[in-house]
Amino acid sequence: MITRDCVAFLEHARGLAPDFGPATARAAFLLAPDGFTLAEQSAADNRYMADAAGFDAARASAQHRGLQRALSRVLPTICFAGDPNTPDALFPNNVFATVAGRYVVGRMRHAVRQREATRADIRGFFGGVLDYAEIDLSTQPHPCELTGAMVVDRARGLGLCGLSERCDEAGARLVHEALGLRATLLFELAPGEYHTNVVLAVLAGRAALICPRGFADSAVVDAIAALYAPHAVLLSPAEHGAFAGNAIALSEDLVWMSAGAEQALTPASRHALAVAGFRVGAVELDAIEAGGGSLRCCVGEIF
């Protein structure tokens, strides 16, 4: 099922068992922020990016290493070298995604990011080392920025895809098919939003962090909240602005977000996460957030 009908999606999704696959990844991969600087093309439709003076490459590199150390305490976490010719490639989840036995290469909107899809080392790792089959969407015309645009409930095989210039409806269908999902809900993001994973996180298939102002239609917010009730956490505008929605669970009991996001959490949000069975792990990432993304954007998942 691929639909814009919230009611039909909710009815179908509620009937699906959490047996699509593991709810969390078995490993993670990062891409180092070598040459980290303002990418003018990406800044054209990413209001979260700082201006050129706001980029501190050395601090971003140190924080990125801290992120790898932190995540490595939970699951194997590898880091590929960066490339100064792709200055905002430290967000690899938009370009590469995995499902059991195969990997998908996305089609980025901007030329500066399309270069990332040609990385022979990353393709060689998935195809040669892990022996995953390849599904290459990078040369077709429809933008589909993978798990930036589509938040995936891995337990039930559900996609939640916000449409924007970074992913059109045809691109969403391609990702849905490549990941073999059971059902995907399509919806419009609010004006000024570029990726769904900045305004929504599904945590280990049993909870969701939702930024209501990131959605064009409140009915979509209501449907997602109903699907993950009683563990749907509606975040405030301040939490949204601090990237609290750009979070990820890499184990059953721990949700990761940036230190700035964690500090912005309200007592109500903290309590809701605790009730859902999650502790919060936080990593300082303010320099990386100058690039318009936060912790979840940095993490590629290996299933």
Rank of each mutant, 00 (worst) to 15 (best):
G171Q: 05
D222Q: 11
L71E: 02
H231S: 15
I78P: 00
A32V: 02
H240D: 15
P84Q: 08
G281Q: 03
D153P: 13
C79A: 10
R107Q: 09
E40W: 11
P143I: 03
S251Y: 09
S236W: 14
A50T: 10
F29D: 07
T24W: 11
E145K: 08
F243C: 03
V112G: 07
E169H: 12
G159Q: 09
L75Y: 00
I288L: 14
L254M: 13
L90R: 00
A27V: 00
E301S: 02
A232M: 07
F91W: 06
T24R: 13
A13T: 12
L146V: 11
G292F: 05
M108S: 14
A172W: 09
E145W: 03
V175K: 06
L285S: 01
V199T: 05
L227K: 04
N197W: 04
A28T: 15
G82D: 03
P267G: 11
P76E: 09
R113K: 03
S218N: 03
P237G: 12
L200W: 12
S138N: 07
A183D: 15
R113I: 03
T24H: 14
L273F: 15
A28L: 14
F29G: 02
L200T: 07
F303Q: 02
R279Y: 08
M49I: 10
R279T: 13
D51N: 14
T196V: 12
R113A: 03
D253G: 04
H231M: 11
T196W: 11
G214E: 08
G300C: 10
A170R: 15
L10R: 00
V299H: 06
R47W: 12
L163W: 02
G171F: 01
A247P: 07
G157Y: 00
R119C: 00
I78H: 02
I210H: 06
A247N: 05
V220P: 02
T24V: 15
A23Q: 08
E169W: 10
C161P: 12
A204H: 09
R65S: 13
D34A: 03
V220A: 10
H271M: 14
L234D: 09
R14F: 00
L295K: 04
F303R: 02
A259L: 13
V280D: 00
V112H: 04
A229T: 14
E134G: 06
T24G: 05
D51W: 13
A155L: 07
A207Q: 05
R296I: 02
S294Y: 04
S42K: 05
V202C: 05
G245H: 07
A242M: 08
M108L: 15
G277S: 04
R65Q: 12
D19P: 14
Q68G: 04
D131W: 06
L158Q: 11
D217W: 11
A172D: 14
E289V: 03
A268K: 14
C6L: 05
R119G: 02
P143S: 06
C79Q: 04
Y132C: 09
V151L: 10
E145T: 02
H110F: 09
L130Y: 08
A81R: 14
A242C: 11
V105D: 01
E239P: 11
G292I: 13
G180M: 08
T139A: 15
P22C: 12
G291E: 03
G241W: 10
P141T: 01
G291K: 01
Y194R: 03
E252Y: 07
E165M: 09
E169P: 09
S72K: 00
R59P: 06
H12K: 08
C79M: 10
C144D: 11
V99P: 00
Q263I: 06
